[in-house]
């Protein structure tokens, strides 16, 4: 059988999701954002919600998410995406409303908006990319930076006496009465990506069923600012991030 015989439309088994358009993404090579963008695109389309999705992008690397996924987007001020989403969902209860935020945006400047939106039980999903660093601004310390981890603003390693401790936002979210589903996933292997996709789908479905707020944390990499190759960054994440940010569902009240 020749390659040409295999490459036929009827034999297609995987292609870039349709909602992810052809605009080249600005993300660094190997960045986790791209995988999560694909998953979000797939889930929105599979749920048949393309016409009813309103997404909110943050300030940070994902600020331009609106250029890549073909749904309606609002670009929020730094940290405020959950406030936008709260209003949008209350004004448009039949819409699928989600925010897409990084750890600087969600766990630092936007902590208040995040916790209060989740605690009010807004029927939204927050997708939280946690790569333990500020990517867009050039690798500064984030609230989620691990102890001992070096960044350009803690070049000798994060020291709890100087910088306090890495913040476990999903653990906090799970304690809030308003949250329905809180989960922590990764996207560094095929199996992990499948699980992460199921988590996003579950969160979106719960939000549409009016079961409360949902947080899907994706423990991610930032190979550029971690100063590693993409492959090495995935290994480092597994060895260092995952022990501090354990994977799995922290709460599932939607069952």
């Amino acid at each position: 059988m020749t390659r040409e015989e295999i490459i036929q439309a009827e034999n297609l088994v995987y292609r870039k999701p349709e909602l992810l358009n052809d605009v080249p993404m600005h993300y660094c090579p190997g960045c986790s954002h791209g995988v999560v963008h694909k998953l979000v695109s797939e889930v929105v389309a599979e749920m048949g919600m393309t016409e009813k999705t309103i997404a909110i992008s943050p300030v940070g690397c994902a600020v331009f998410a609106y250029k890549y996924i073909d749904v309606d987007w609002q670009e929020a001020a730094h940290g405020r995406a959950p406030a936008l989403a709260s209003a949008v969902k209350r004004l448009w209860p039949d819409r699928l409303v989600f925010t897409y935020q990084g750890d600087g945006d969600l766990a630092c400047i936007g902590t208040a908006e995040t916790i209060h939106a989740l605690n009010r039980g807004e029927n939204i999903t927050i997708i939280f990319i946690n790569n333990a660093i500020y990517g867009m601004t050039g690798g500064q310390m984030a609230p989620t930076t691990l102890l001992g981890m070096k960044t350009v603003t803690c070049p000798y390693g994060r020291d709890p006496k100087l910088h306090g401790y890495p913040l476990k936002m999903a653990d906090i979210a799970a304690q809030l009465e308003g949250t329905c589903y809180v989960t922590r996933q990764t996207v560094h292997t095929v199996a992990a990506i499948r699980k992460a996709k199921n988590a996003i789908r579950k969160a979106f479905e719960y939000s549409m069923q009016g079961k409360g707020s949902n947080l899907v944390e994706i423990v991610s990499t930032c190979n550029t600012n971690w100063r590693m190759s993409p492959v090495k960054a995935n290994q480092w994440m597994e060895e260092n991030m995952v022990p501090y940010y354990p994977l799995g569902d922290l709460k599932d009240n939607g069952k």
Partner: peptide
């Protein structure tokens, strides 16, 4: 009733954007 004026105005931003 929002958690702050900062949240209030950003809720307004989100609502107005729709």
């Amino acid at each position: 009733q929002a958690e702050s004026e900062v949240a209030s105005i950003n809720m307004v931003y989100g609502g107005a954007a729709t």
